Every structure is written in structure tokens, then in C-alpha cells.
Amino acid sequence: MKKNKIRVGISLGDYNGIGPELILKTFSDSRMLEFCTPIVFASGRIFSYYSNMLKIGDLPINLINHADDAQKKKINIVSVWREETKIQPGQPTLESGKYAYLSLKHAVDNLANNKFDVLVTAPVNKKFIQSKNFDFKGHTEFLASYANEDNPLMMMVTENLKVALVTVHEPLKEVPKIISKDLIVKKIEALHHSLITDFLVKKPKIAVLGLNPHAGDGGLLGDEEDKIIRPAIQEVKEKDILAFGPYPADGLFGNARLLHEFDAVLAMYHDQGLTPFKALYFSEGVNFTANLPIVRTSPDHGPAYEITGKGIADITSFRNAVYLACDIFHNRKFYKELSANPLPKANIKE
């Protein structure tokens, strides 16, 4: 039986960044339109401007008013706004931030109404998107609030490495005040669940990082490992979750053999996890928001204003975000069907 094409909703991001280029170049490959049906929430004028600037012609663009009107094998653009906007490639503005929010809001509203299946978000500028309607530190927090989920999990994903975070967009000085045993337990449990349902790992093994250099070095360099992190690991082990650590971040990421023994790594804070991840996989990694009822991915980079309009943006991460969103959608469906119809236990007589 052939699978139905997944409908991929896409928010534009900051139109003065590389978002429009990523979308146009990704779906200018006709094979991508065979793979899924893109539905972009934006303005036709934005894509007309960038397709002319980047000299990308003969695209099967379908301008529509509603997501219901999307067609297969087309780049469907839902007209979120029709008024003219000032396009300034490479320059973030309050106006481009305003329309980045409008695109995102229309996309999530349509997703909530089952108008498409998965959401891929192009990069925004976290400062210029701020408004009375968007008082969040990023996509992760906005989507968690929209879904009324108090334990979202930010993950960076490639085939070879998955890194999740306990704290996300928090100032470093605040991290020791935020982490607690209960919070770490919740994040380990969310990561464990995601590995099973989203990635179909049967019995995940999770490496948990320490907070301090050398994972505290026996209390010499900090006591959070002994007071908070180890007790959290012990608690989840009692729930039959295979979590290990705490490991020093440099020791784990510097030891490829040890690192590859685990299905995922849980880092305590943003740069502890993302710096080594991006050093290894920057061009291909994907940002995935786990532990939400919806599937949302994005490329693992920002708007890249310094190269906007030059036609040199690497689409690999964005394209992988589309692939991963579709894979997770199928995996969740498969896991749900498998769980709903387990094989009956056989009564074996001795």
C-alpha cells in the first residue's frame, strides 16, 4: 500500500534572512515534491522577489488562500498577508519580525486544525520577533505554550548523534539555579519516551552530562553532580530507564567509542550540548522539539543575514528537517499502531 504524501506546513521565518532561499531551493528539486506536499505560510510577493533575485525560475508555485486548497507536486503558498512589505535582505527589522510571527501563528493554527501533518520552521530573529503576541525566547517555548505542555524537550538530531537539553535559552549564570533533580528526571523521561516513539529505539541508552568541569571531580569543582544529577539518574534507573553518568562533556564528546554506545546525550545547558554537536554536524543537524503532541523541526542554524540574497545558503539542514519531520510522523503512527495491537502472550506449558 502506498503511503499518502505527508503535508508539510512551513513557517517563513525572517524574510530578510535565508528562510525564503532555503524553501525555494529545497523544493526546486522535483524529487522533494514527490516526497511530500509543502504548504508555506507567507506572501507570494516574498517568493517572487527572492526567486528573481536568486534567478530560480520555472517553479511550480501555487498561490492559495487556504491550506485546504494545497495541491500535490506544487509549492503551495498560503497568502497570510497581501499588503506590501519592505524587503531588506540581510537586515532584520521590526517589520520582518512582525511577519515572521504572523507566518508562524497561521501555521500553528492550521496545524491545530489538522490542515497539514508536520511543521517545519524557518529561522527567526529572536529579538525582532518579540511583541505583545510573542513574548518567548524561541520557537520551543512558543510551541510548548501553544500546546499547553510544560515539559518540551529541545533536541539536536542527526543519524549518528542526538543531544537533548535540560535548560534551553537560559543565561549561563541562571542554569545552576534552575536545574533540580525533579527537572532532570522529567527531561530524562521525556528523552527516553521520544527515543522509543519518535525514533523507534527499543531500549534506549542515555548519557547524562555533569554541570561542572570534570563532572565536579568528586566535589572539588562543584557539588551539583553529587547532590542533584546522580540522584536523578538513580531515580530513573529504578524506573527501568537506562541512564548513565554524569559524564564530563569534554570526555564524552572527545571519546567517539564511548559516545556511540549511547542513543542520546542529555546536556545541562545550551552551549554544553550544542557546541560539540554543531562542531561535528553543523551543516546536517536538525532541531526537533520533542514531547509535544505535534511534530516540529527546523534547521540547526539562524537566519544567516550575512549571506542572505547571495544564493550560497546550504539547504542540507533545512532539507533534513523536512525528512526528519516526515520520518517522525510515520514512526509515531507505527508505534501507536504497534502499541494498540500487541501480540498476545503465549501460554507455554512445561
Rank of each mutant, 00 (worst) to 15 (best):
G97T: 15
G138A: 03
V166P: 08
K98W: 08
A164I: 01
E149W: 01
A107S: 15
A144V: 06
K98Q: 14
L119E: 00
L111A: 03
A144L: 01
M156P: 00
F128Q: 10
F136C: 01
T167N: 14
P152I: 03
M155W: 00
K115S: 07
S96T: 07
T158G: 03
A112E: 15
N151M: 03
V166T: 15
K115Y: 07
A147L: 02
F142Y: 12
L104Y: 02
E95M: 11
F142L: 00
S145K: 14
N110Y: 07
S131V: 11
F134C: 06
S131Q: 12
Q91E: 09
F134G: 04
V166D: 08
A164M: 08
V108D: 07
H106Q: 11
D135E: 13
V124F: 01
Y99A: 10
F116K: 05
A122N: 08
S131I: 13
K162G: 01
D150S: 15
V163I: 12
V166H: 11
M155S: 11
K98P: 12
V157T: 10
E95I: 07
V163Q: 10
S96V: 05
E149P: 00
E141V: 04
T167A: 12
V120K: 08
E141S: 02
A164K: 04
K105G: 12
K162V: 06
V157K: 01
Y101V: 14
T121D: 01
A122H: 06
G97H: 09
M155L: 12
D135C: 01
N133G: 13
M156W: 02
I129M: 08
N113V: 00
Q130K: 10
K105S: 15
V166L: 04
N125Y: 04
K98A: 11
L104S: 06
A112F: 11
L161C: 12
F142A: 01
